[in-house]
Simulated assay, not measured.
Amino acid sequence: MATWKDVEDAEPEFAARVRKIFDAGENKIIATLRADGSPRVSGIEAQFRDGEVTFGSMPGSRKGADLRRDPRFALHAPSPDPPQDKTTWAGDAKLSGRAVPVGALTEGPEGEHFRAEIDEVVVTRLNDSATMLVIESWRPGGGLRRVERA
């Protein structure tokens, strides 16, 4: 597992693009696992701060209960529609890993604070001529991988 700082140190240009996509809007989507193993998708706010990705959950929330029981999650950036000129689309970003509880939220409403241990970061976008799908993925110890699909 890695921190966001590990991603920034290993692949600064890739990390900057991921961060730009995540920063395009306040509301992100998190997927957690219910007790029966099925997915739960919820809206969430997440922050990139001091080399960490952090997020919170309200007291008694199902997402917090999910993360305490099984810390695996996937976090998806805001996903606006691609512009008419698809060559200018920054793409779609997501990261996955495990949520580590770090205590009570210290700002805003009451709740729990989590930090992300990152297992994978992915950007899906179009190539410069908007003729192929480009999937870039980073994993700790595996580096950055790029695949193009027609």
Rank of each mutant, 00 (worst) to 15 (best):
T3C: 12
T3L: 14
K5V: 03
K5S: 15
K5F: 09
D6P: 11
D6R: 12
V7H: 12
P12G: 04
P12Y: 04
P12C: 04
E13M: 01
R17D: 06
F22T: 01
D23P: 00
G25C: 00
N27E: 00
A31Q: 11
A31I: 09
T32E: 03
L33W: 02
L33R: 13
G37M: 02
G37W: 02
R40V: 01
I44Y: 02
E45R: 12
Q47G: 07
Q47P: 00
R49I: 13
R49W: 03
R49F: 05
D50M: 03
D50K: 14
G51Y: 09
E52L: 15
V53F: 05
G60C: 08
R62P: 00
G64S: 09
L67H: 04
R69P: 00
P71D: 05
H76R: 10
P82A: 11
D85W: 08
T87P: 10
D92E: 12
T106R: 14
G108S: 09
P109Y: 09
F114M: 06
I118W: 11
V123H: 01
V123L: 12
T124P: 01
R125D: 14
L133Y: 03
L133G: 06
V134D: 05
I135T: 15
E136M: 05
P140W: 10
G143P: 08
G143F: 09
R146K: 15
E148W: 07
